[in-house]
């Protein structure tokens, strides 16, 4: 009994260590989306590129799409723009933009100057759709399957590595199951 008590601190240290070790390497600022497995929220917003036309959640039906949340005020969005251009050029997946809490003139200048990887851009100056999607900081990128269900969300810059290792496998899976 006494022997056992001597080992008690070691036992406690091991248990605590296992718990803490599990947390190493996890980025606490990256949260799982609450929308995974759910339909894209209902919305009705104008298109950025053609202000007269309205867009709604039907936009996400029919094929797997990438929904990229961006704004000209967001420096990290500039960082990922070239990668988005490359994905669009190689026609890997249709990219839909969500211009979040931005203004139309700035956004159009940005697309004109840096290139336009988006098939359609939803114009959301008040951030209502962004709020319903649980967007808490641009850039964020969602994978949405052909029936309009959110499959994945990536928070932060979309670079080559994120694309190859995370998004592309999710997209391929969504295509197979869809």
């Amino acid at each position: 009994m006494k022997r056992f008590l001597l080992f008690l601190p070691l036992l406690v240290a091991v248990i605590v260590g296992v718990f803490l070790f599990a947390g190493i390497g996890k980025d606490p600022t990256k949260l799982d989306s609450a929308l995974i497995g759910k339909q894209v929220p209902v919305f009705s917003l104008k298109s950025l590129k053609s202000p007269d036309s309205s867009l709604d959640e039907g936009l996400f039906r029919g094929e797997v799409t990438l929904l990229n949340v961006w704004g000209t005020w967001c420096p990290a969005c500039r960082d990922e723009h070239d990668d988005l251009m490359r994905i669009a050029r190689e026609k890997k997946v249709a990219i839909i933009g969500l211009n979040y809490k931005d203004n139309r003139d700035d956004a159009l200048v940005w697309l004109d100057r840096l290139g336009d990887p988006y098939r359609t851009v939803i114009y959301d100056p008040k951030g209502t759709l962004g709020f319903d999607l649980g967007v808490y900081g641009a850039p964020e990128t969602f994978v949405i399957d052909a029936s309009g269900v959110v499959r994945y969300r990536h928070v932060g810059v979309l670079n080559g590595e994120v694309w190859e290792q995370i998004l592309l496998p999710v997209i391929n899976e969504a295509r197979e199951n869809g």
Partner: peptide, 8 residues
């Protein structure tokens, strides 16, 4: 709010 942003 949990529906949008999660249990967090």
């Amino acid at each position: 709010l949990v529906d949008r942003f999660g249990e967090f």
